[in-house]
Design a protein around this nucleic acid. Sequence first.
DNA 1: TGGTTATTTTGCTAATTTAGCAACAAATAG
DNA 2: CTATTTGTTGCTAAATTAGCAAAATAACCA
Lengths: 106, 106
Amino acid sequence: MDKKTKARYEAKAKIFKAMAHPTRLFIVDELSQEEKCVCELTEMIGSDVSTVSKHLSILKGAGIVKDEKRGTQVYYNLKIKCVLNFLSCVESVMKASAKEQLELVI
Amino acid sequence: MDKKTKARYEAKAKIFKAMAHPTRLFIVDELSQEEKCVCELTEMIGSDVSTVSKHLSILKGAGIVKDEKRGTQVYYNLKIKCVLNFLSCVESVMKASAKEQLELVI
DNA sequence: TGGTTATTTTGCTAATTTAGCAACAAATAG
DNA sequence: CTATTTGTTGCTAAATTAGCAAAATAACCA
């Protein structure tokens, strides 16, 4: 595998990694409906603000969300809508696995 | 967040995590074209067989690929085709980020 | 049976990721 | 200017993951 191809796979993996955390998937889901400030997300999630802020900066670094400061608050928006398609596929993976499991038992 | 919802996000995250590695993305890409045995993938990837086998078992555990033993060899197949749609979205995330970067420089 | 090939499992260490407290920074209100 | 609200950053401990190497398992053939 040449260097460029390898670098491309690494870059793609980084984006998957950014989504590969339950809290961050929750954030993406919430932001798909409407923008939210860090404080709102923090309350929903129930972790420390610093933890939530860090999750958001990972999503931002991956180019998945964007932020906008308004007054003392920072609002986050979903930047790339197609990531939602990921989620429906993931659900179909889950369904297929569950179905198989079930068939093993029956 | 209730227990069930939390568990669902964790399950989804697991699937993302399974894809969140350059080698595993490469494997998914290769398998999208045609089935391959562990030995073929190992040669392409250039890591230790044990490492490749572990990557494959992670993809299998996530329900993304399936295996089939034929003689002494184990062939792997892509089970869920829609994961390929992920990849095109990931590419659009990458393009958008690169474009932004470029605009900062110009 | 014994030896060979293909794959998986296990043991181990190094590297990465995560959570949350505490300190710091920015914007605003009084 | 000082206090308050909101977020970010630095740091540490705990948990997870990666990858090599050695041992174990399985199928095949002489």
